[in-house]
Amino acid sequence: MRWTLIKTIRAALTLLLVVSFVFFVLRLSGDPTYMLLPDDIDEATRDFYRSKWGLDAPLFEQYRSYLVALLHGDFGISFRNNLDAFDLVWDRVPKTALLMGTSLLIALAMGIPLGIIAALYRDSWLDRGVMTVSVFGFSMPNFFLGILLILVFSLNLRVLPSSGSDTWWHLIMPAATLGISYAAQFARYTRSSMIDVLSKPYMRTARSKGAAPARRVNLHALPNAAIPVVTILGFKVGEMLGGAVVVETVFAWPGIGRLLTSAVATRDLAVVQCIMILLAITMIAANTLTDLLYGWLDPRVRVGAKAGAR
């Protein structure tokens, strides 16, 4: 219980740090009125907009009101179209969630079985084949893979749409692009974790008890091999968010990532801020959940934390 509390406090602290970091970096980048208003506008109009957007207050005062507003769920107004920044971003969440969810499913459904097979038939041609494909898979930059898929399936074979999100067909290529490199990584992690577990004394014990091979793999090896894979899964979510930005741009998938690249191009401060904070929350939540899940799967972690070890 105490362990859970510590983890939660740490997560909240990290979030506060990210929020402050975002605020100061974006505020220090210069006066937004110069980016958004025409250059030849008179100083009085500029001042009007400064006070309207609260930019005339001292920096610390701005920071304080920014934090208070965030606590009330107020992410500000988009400079571009005067809509609530949060609403703009929230509208895009389902699309990104769909893309990420499908990619993760592809990654797990391909990577984990392949990793298990490679570990069970270690050093066979099967193992070497899986590992070779996996090195190719995770060395491939996702933006380039996306472009190759568009070249082959949209421009040459003309079987899949290259951009948009109107039908399920539109989901195939972006999800495959994002999923494949993670499938390759999960295959590697699963394989090394399985190999590690298979050499443990308790596996020998299980065999000497006469447990059937399928039972040994399913009940003795897999749950133990799952622990490191689950940990990595949580940390990969953050990386995947970055990948989603790129993949959404390549395939014109109308999710958060594409909104971010366009908001960044038009310097829409409130929208960029809102996206970064939401993504940070997602990532920190994923990491904390992983930590908690890890402690639940492997009681040794909790005990270690109580004993004061890091």
Partner: peptide, 25 residues
């Protein structure tokens, strides 16, 4: 230092880099 390490690991660095580069030029 280890808190800083945890902090860095918990940040969506690619996305932060994107915003910083866009705004700081």
């Amino acid at each position: 230092i280890m808190a800083l390490v945890d902090f860095q690991a918990a940040m969506p660095w690619f996305i932060i880099a994107l915003a910083v580069l866009a705004f700081l030029g």
